[in-house]
Design a protein around this nucleic acid. Structure first.
Length: 204
DNA sequence: TAGTAACA
DNA sequence: TTCA
């Protein structure tokens, strides 16, 4: 484990190839039940380049009308999200350093051209609990800074199997994905990157 | 504003 | 950096 900044812990190669393949199968099952959809920004309705779905009791969603929020139902199918796969619950227990289990697992799919601007994860009620992030598939250029948007940032290439934990002082750090490096992994059938972020939403 | 264009 |  490397401490990248206060509260930002990096576990390179946390999952080996076999474990990564098993996780991809877990996510395939999630996506079959809860299909990826295109989220839209609040107010402007501009579409994000990343496709999303969730598993867990709650899922993070956004649309033009209601903005960022957690809700129990898939916005397209209106069905409850599938359960968080046991392997991901185990990851949270292993690296999350948190008494309470995660309630949400946001699944972000990045195609070759997708990116995500610098942002904070601040739609949860619980900032004591960490955010645990797992990368699968193509390498990306990840950027993170401090709790203010204009704090200096550092960039790091995240590869398949890497885990990052934002906790404590790092919980509200700004972070984003500047680019995907297509063809850097053969884990997924087509190129692209899957990012899974486990979160505790409520306080108790 | 988890995005983006326009601009210094 | 501003705007939205």
């Amino acid at each position: 484990m490397l401490l990248l900044a206060p509260g930002i812990r990096y576990f390179p190669d946390h999952f080996n190839a076999a474990a990564q393949a098993a996780l991809v199968e877990d996510i395939r099952a999630v996506v079959t039940e809860a299909p990826l959809y295109i989220p839209a920004m609040p107010k402007t309705g501009k579409e994000m380049s990343v496709r999303m779905t969730n598993c867990g009791a709650l899922g993070w969603v956004t649309d033009k009308e209601q903005g960022y929020r957690y809700q129990a139902l898939h916005p397209v199918t209106q069905k409850p999200w599938p359960a968080i796969p046991p392997r991901l619950l185990a990851l949270w227990q292993e690296v999350g350093d948190c008494r309470l289990p995660p309630e949400a697992c946001l699944v972000n799919f990045y195609s070759e051209a997708a990116k995500m601007g610098l942002h904070q994860d601040r739609d949860e009620q619980n900032f004591q609990a960490p955010v645990v992030s797992l990368s699968l598939g193509d390498t990306c250029l990840f950027r993170f800074g401090g709790i203010n948007r204009n704090d200096k940032t550092q960039s790091l290439k995240l590869k398949s199997g890497d885990v990052i934990v934002l906790g404590g002082e790092g919980r509200l750090a700004f972070h984003g994905v500047d680019r995907i490096y297509p063809g850097t992994s053969t884990l997924l059938k087509s190129s692209g990157r899957i990012n899974l972020t486990l979160r505790r939403v409520t306080v108790s």
